[in-house]
Design a protein around this nucleic acid. Structure first.
Lengths: 226, 226
DNA sequence: AACTGCGCAATGCAGCTGCAATGCAGCGCC
DNA sequence: GGCGCTGCATTGCAGCTGCATTGCGCAGTT
């Protein structure tokens, strides 16, 4: 569990940090809105603990920015002010919970747990062909639901081919997809990987075939059914 | 939006009913736990407003029953008592929010809106794999019911892997889950933790295996064994 | 002060990976 | 059709990369 803590008072920071750490969470800390924006954009957090009063503005603006860019990370807002209009504004800005200072750590942690119980809404896009599925987000191939452990290069070949299932993939395109520009490959390494991949797919009854077209490239297609 | 209101005081019922209706919500009312159970089983609600003090018992038992049967309907608990242990117990029972009476209707409605915004699927409280169980709420691992004492980092590794049991977890993802930004890790610290975790799981006969896929990441799977 | 968790470095090793050798199939050219 | 050339397929091999494991010392905790 990775938490982003956005808070400027040093005392509060160290207290919260310690409490969270004691509960086995990994904490990143931002002392300002600008910093928090950077972190939230770069990294993936399971939840954000956000103070409203920050040196460079109102914390709620961060929430609005997150939601605008469809980032659904749970946000728990901490605030010194705690009157009703305040709370309503906080919650309606897109925050998931709102806690007024002073608060009890126990309650904060319980509320955090409640937020973290909800699943992170990242559903990965998957490409299918035959009995194969390729999870683009997690960069993982499964075959009939079972994970298919493939080494890096073979995985890259498979991905490149599956992204254009049933269509030609030029040899040069594949080369670029599998070997970066950095690697100077001058042999038939690509053929090797394709061959090994073929074997694994055949052994696992993947329901797909890789055809090689002489002088052009490769083509992955679903195998005709029995 | 369809709401189940579980409350026995007639005044409160009519007040809430009116307030909710004014916000275009459809309200069903149950005056007791028994009634509420029936309703919850028969119908599908977008959220449940639940008083704790009911003539036939504690409202939290309803929450537990819901969660036990994997019903993830968001629950907002209303209560006359409002001390900290009370709130913690309420939230940890599986409720999503907890509001002490007296409260402002405006806040109640804002919190309700916040709940209804969230995708409503609920995540299992404990993740299981082999003889292992990981209690997400209390953040502890047990093996055949016996608690398994794990240091912080190893626990984080285990959690990250168990959340995706049987599927690939990229090395980079794991790094993110285990280390924050502040920790500047430049070595094979992750491998070290994985190794130590492996040893402990093996010693304890955990019924799971951690596979490393070279160049990609790690994969935790159940060991085929009675 | 004892202890434990943690990061780090050293060492060993397995498997990926690139390469080349061999075989084969398509294709053109007589 | 026969023949040779060319480009892909496959497989064995060797180097090397990246992971596994273990011991050590520092730091934080009690």
């Amino acid at each position: 569990m990775r938490i982003l803590l956005v808070e400027d008072e040093p005392e509060m920071v160290s207290a919260l940090r310690a409490a969270l750490k004691r509960h086995d969470m990994v904490v990143d800390h931002a002392a300002s809105l600008g910093e928090a924006d950077d972190f939230a954009l770069e990294e993936n957090y399971d939840a954000i603990l956000l103070d409203r009063q920050l040196p460079d503005g109102d914390g709620l603006s961060l929430v609005r920015r997150l939601r605008t860019r469809k980032d659904g990370t749970p946000v728990l807002v901490l605030t010194a002010r705690g009157d009703i209009p305040d709370r309503v504004a906080g919650l309606d800005s897109g925050a998931d919970d709102y806690l007024a200072k002073p608060f009890a750590f126990e309650e904060l942690l319980a509320r955090l747990r409640a937020l973290l119980r909800r699943p992170s809404a990242v559903q990965a896009q998957t490409i299918r062909a035959g009995h194969l599925a390729f999870d683009v987000g997690h960069r993982e191939a499964t075959i009939r639901g079972e994970p298919l452990a493939l080494p890096r290069r073979e995985l890259l070949v498979l991905e490149a081919l599956m992204r254009r299932t049933g269509r030609m993939v030029q040899r040069a395109v594949l080369m670029e997809a599998v070997f970066g520009l950095d690697d100077e490959i001058q042999s038939n390494a690509l053929d090797t990987h394709v061959s090994r991949l073929r074997k694994k797919l055949a052994d696992a009854e993947g329901g797909v075939t890789i055809n090689g077209i002489r002088g052009v490239g490769y083509l992955l297609r679903e195998t005709a059914n029995p």
